[in-house]
Amino acid sequence: MEASVELAGLIAQIQANTVIVVGLMFVAAAIGTAFGFAILGSKFLESAARQPELAGMLQVRMFIIAGLLDALSIIGVAFAALLMFANPLLGPIQQAAGG
């Protein structure tokens, strides 16, 4: 009985810490992407207003940079999804409980 309570406490501790980390990952991804896209969009509009004939070409370059900007935050969110839905950090405890 005592062992199962201790086990539940350990799992709860890991899950609580995981929730904090997942939150931080989402915040970092959101802030990074928001700032990146805001700067990208504002600079594009600024450049298009200054030289309208370059707008199309700048859009192509913006597409490439946005791909990079998005990719890093998507990878962060993907790891956050892994921690949320199939937390690998619980594995050793579950193994210990089983064995």
């Binding site: 993907a78 999804a81 839905f85």
Partner: peptide, 18 residues
């Protein structure tokens, strides 16, 4: 749209193909 679709796809992968 890209971000939302990526999150949906990675959630599916994390849940069923962890």
């Amino acid at each position: 749209l890209k971000f939302v679709l990526a999150v949906i796809m990675f959630v599916i992968v994390a849940q069923w193909f962890a």
